[in-house]
Design a binder for these strands. Structure first.
Lengths: 151, 151
DNA sequence: GCAAGGCTTGAAGTGAACTTTAAGCCCGCA
DNA sequence: TGCGGGCTTAAAGTTCACTTCAAGCCTTGC
């Protein structure tokens, strides 16, 4: 049940110094210490670590994650702040997903472009390609790309 | 048709120093200069800038984007490398999308959790919640979360 | 003709998130 | 009893992607 910092780090695919850094930044106030000052990670600490990992994945800076942890320690009075924070995180993630979809369309188009060009040994023929000559699926991608940038 | 560096930056929602930085890093070898050494951006340069923006959005570091630009300058011989690069970028974007979907599930769950807790003024009742008591949609999210971490 | 404003460069500074180093403590084992 | 290994800390170093600064060059308007 109890884990040393190295074991906890391995389980979270992090380094021990990273966990120490998070602790120093105030992200891990819930981690217990042994009599001699050694960090002892318990099962429930991994819930917190997974949540921190999740918030980091939304692009949240350490400073703001600390704010959230602090709110958790303050108790029920900060429930509205925490609710608002997650609503805001939700918006941020949805925005990132849209951005990533737009990026994927361009990458997909380029994949087709370079697959075709590499097969032909040159991309000159592609320069004079007309939209009508594109394969159906590539044309669709191209249309989405053009629709987005408003050209 | 021609743009100064500040105009080009404004159009790309970047700063002029950022464009100079990109140029210094070798990302903009295609940008022309006036007789007195002033950068002059033409329409086709924005295609390049949009592509650089796209590659950055995939999480690609500047160094690797420069590699791609260099390949472009080298001509047809590097078409396979460029094709492979975009295939690899595609994999990276799909992985990011999956990661973001997993993150969104956790955030959605937390949104429900804190909306419920904030309404109740406390999150204690939620601690003893049974999965059966969850609303249908929240239960679905919860199941996806659990399925992912393999618990 | 000259001052203002925008361009140029190289170099130094910034902030975020670690990572590495150095010095020291504690525990288990031969 | 002493040695090795893993823990502790504070502090310094690293990387990335800019950003800011300083000094100077063009061009344009009064």
């Amino acid at each position: 049940m109890p884990y040393t910092i190295s074991e906890a780090a391995a389980r979270m695919h992090l380094s021990a110094p990273t966990l120490r850094y998070y602790d120093k930044e105030g992200l891990l106030p819930f981690v217990d210490r042994s009599a001699s000052g050694v960090r002892v990670f318990k099962e429930s600490d991994f819930e917190w670590l997974r949540l921190i990992e999740c918030l980091k994945a939304t692009g949240m800076p350490i400073r703001d994650i600390k704010q959230f942890i602090d709110w958790c320690l303050e108790g029920d009075a900060t429930l509205p702040q925490r609710r608002d924070m997650f609503r805001e995180r939700r918006r941020a993630v949805l925005a990132q997903m849209e951005r990533l979809q737009a990026t994927l369309d361009i990458i997909d188009y380029k994949c087709w472009y370079y697959e075709t060009a590499a097969k032909a040994g040159s991309d000159l023929p592609l320069q004079s390609f007309k939209p009508e000559d594109l394969p159906e699926d590539v044309r669709k991608i191209r249309e989405r790309i053009l629709a987005r940038c408003g050209c």
